[in-house]
Structure formats: structure tokens, C-alpha cells
Write a protein that binds this DNA or RNA. Sequence first.
DNA 1: AACATCTTTAACGCGTCCTTAACGCCTCGC
DNA 2: GCGAGGCGTTAAGGACGCGTTAAAGATGTT
Lengths: 231, 231
Amino acid sequence: MSDVRILVVDDEVQILRALKTNLEAREYAVSTASDGEEALRLIADVNPDLLILDLGLPKKSGLDVLRSLRTWSDIPVIIVSARNGDPDKIAALDEGADDYLTKPFSIGELMARVRAALRRRVQTEQSAIVVTPDFEVDFSKGVATRRGEVVHLTPLEWKIVGVLVHSEGRLVTQRSLLSEVWGPHYDNESGYLRVHMTHIRRKLEPEPARPRYFRTEPGIGYRFIADGGPR
Amino acid sequence: MSDVRILVVDDEVQILRALKTNLEAREYAVSTASDGEEALRLIADVNPDLLILDLGLPKKSGLDVLRSLRTWSDIPVIIVSARNGDPDKIAALDEGADDYLTKPFSIGELMARVRAALRRRVQTEQSAIVVTPDFEVDFSKGVATRRGEVVHLTPLEWKIVGVLVHSEGRLVTQRSLLSEVWGPHYDNESGYLRVHMTHIRRKLEPEPARPRYFRTEPGIGYRFIADGGPR
DNA sequence: AACATCTTTAACGCGTCCTTAACGCCTCGC
DNA sequence: GCGAGGCGTTAAGGACGCGTTAAAGATGTT
């Protein structure tokens, strides 16, 4: 048995079983989920190397799963859906999916795409939890705390914090921040960002007027410093 | 203007032209080739960030191109082919292709898959660091340090340092420096430059009054020397 | 349909960065 | 040895971007 873990999410039992059988025949370790919330729970739990995700799910749609997953994880995701319209494909790919197959698909092709996705897997091992002297952010649970107290973050704030924290110490241009958060077409209009940065700082920074963790690089973008750095 | 280079390989001229137009509209730098040998030559020549490759090519098939390419390069490859049989897809994906689209395909979907492939590239790219005995500049992280201490560079200073460092050891005329930093219309007016060079030297040079790394060539321009060179 | 939450938009004060000008020094030519 | 032009340096002005606030618009929920 290989040590590659794959999570398959689909609400149709027979498809779930067929995929599981085929993947296990190739010696992958397979977990399964049949709705969106269970999927997110299992992702945090088993920490799979790859996700095969149906779009039409109960509880939480596949797109929702993908969206919240992408705030803290870069594992490859292959979408498997009955919808074959352009808008669906483009939306899923732009939300961070790595591949998109339309049902019905050939098992052989899916397996080849699984191999392709796993081949370029990079060992980033980014932790889902970020701890600073002043606050903590747990992306897998979706909980942020400041000095023990839970602070509420909106979806957009989660995404912005996710992008910045994910590339810790690195200067993130507002251009790439915008396109990673709002999608590839909103690569200017930085007016939004300033407002949300204010909110994030008010919620997390010990002294929002003089940010230590979420720093501004004027004219370029923002940078997250995990230990607060010198000041 | 983006600095992402894409090479498109197809033997049908109208497809080549359509793809080129669409990609350039999205501000990618596009090169084209129409047979396998030309493709390999251009890959080595322009060093593209992504390859869009047709399978049915003269001289050398797309699969051959892919095979020999994969012996030295890991750039993402999107296959675009009229064949939609499983064996073709599986073979191409297992030879190292990242994605496979069947003709005819929608331009929108291709563009989304291009974005998806390029998105992954960012994680793989190694950081572009310039190291001298006295200071370091990391362009990918956006960090400059002098003797371990972080020094702050303004956007303009980043650009100027970038241009000079990029052509290390070579003389850069103030004319080309100006047009690369400020745009093609500001190719005289060297008053700006002198001020900013002062700032850069004060921040990076160990002895700003006697620059070792950012040297002046009177009447012509500037030159960056990575090891400080002879005094 | 009313409410609550989140996102977007607009406006304003403030700080940073870019520009501009002035001046002294150096180098080179006469 | 003298003058001119280019360069380095400094300081001050203004333009622009950023933080902040408040309110309108969008979205989802009861």
C-alpha cells in the first residue's frame, strides 16, 4: 500500500464505490465523503494528498468546499461534475481547481490525471495553524483567536489572511493579492483592499494603528511577519 | 504588461493565430511554432513559462517533443489535440503533460486552464537572490538586507536595482535605465536618477561615498558588480 | 418582507515617496 | 590654472497612495 492519501467526495454511492475500488487497486489510500461539510472535516482530519471533488453536493456545494479549502491548503483538486458548461469549468478552475472532468468520464483518463496531479505535487507542508505572540489562526477549523478570545473573520478576510500568511515574510503585491482573492480579472482597483486590511488589523493586531504583523509596503503591497519582527 | 512567456505549437495556421490573439489580449508574451523541431528550438531559445502543444505535428510529433522536453525541463505543458481517445490522453499525461484538451475546445476553458497551470508555477519557482559580500537582495521575497539587517526599498528603488542587477557586470546607459524604469518617453532627464542612486547607495553600499557595487560610468550610465570587484 | 451580515463605494486626513531645485565637488578640456 | 559640465548630496515642495470612517448596496436568513 502506497502512502498517498486520496479523498473522494461524491453524493452518488455507486460512483463513490467505483472510484474507491479503482483507486485502491492502484494502491492509493482512499477516504470518502458524501457531502460538503463531511468533506471539509475529513480534509482537516486525514490531510489527503489529493482531492477528487464532485460539484453537486448536499450541505455545501463543491465550489464552497474548494473555496474554503483554498484559504489554507494547496493540495491538488480534480473536479468531477455532470455540468459541462464553460462557465462552470472556468469558475471552478479559477477558484483553484487543478483539473476538471465531465461525467461520464473514463476511469483510465481520471487515473492518468490523478497521476499527473500527484507528479507535480510539491512538498510545501504549510501548517494549517499559524501562531504569533498576539494571535492565532487555525485555517482548518476556521477559528481565529486573540489572547484566548475568539474573533470572527468574514470570508473575504479569511481569504486575504490566508494568502498573506501562506507566503509569510514575502512581499505580496496588491496585484497578485487581488487576483488571488477576487479572481484573475480584478487585478487592479486596490480600493477594496485598504478597507479590509483595516478590518483585519483591527481584529488581530494588538495596535492596529501601528501594524506589526500585517505590514504595508507603500506602492507595492503587503507582507505578513509571523513573529512581529523588530520595531 | 505581463512577463509571462507562452509558446504555442500547432501546424494549423488559423488556430495558431487565434490562440496568439487571445493570449496576447490577456497580456501574455506569445511565441509560436508550427512543427516539432522548431518547437524544441524555440523552447531552448525563449525559455517559455508554459507550452501549449498540438499532438499532430510535422517533423516530430507532439509526443516526441514532450518526451525530449521532459528530460531537461518541468515547465507546464497543455496538450491540445483532435484525438479524443483514452489511449492518447493517457499516453500524453503519463509522458508528463499537465493537461489535455480535445479539439474543438472553448477558448474560455483553455484560458482558465492556462491560468490554473501558471498558478502552480509560482510555488515551484526558486527565489531570485543576489548576494554580495556586503548585502543581499531577494527579489522574489521582496527583501533586501545589509549585514543581516533589513533595509527598506521604495518601488522605484526596487525597479532600478532590478534593472542593474539583472544585467550584472554590464554597462547600462542612463537612457535605457530611464526608459525601463519610467517608461519609453523619459529617455533623458537624468536628474531623477542621480537622486535615487544616492538613496540606493546609502542603503546598500558599505561606503556610499565610494561605491563598489553600483558604479558610475561618467557620461554614459551605471554598472552593477556583484563581488564588488577591484577598488 | 424585514433583518442582519458582509461587501463595495465614496470621502477625507495623513504619511510616504517622487520630483525638483540648489549647491559643492570632481574631472576634463582649453 | 581656469571654466564648464556632469555627478553626488541635501532639503523642500507637491503628488499620490494608504488608513480610516461611514454609509449605501448586495446577499442570505428568518
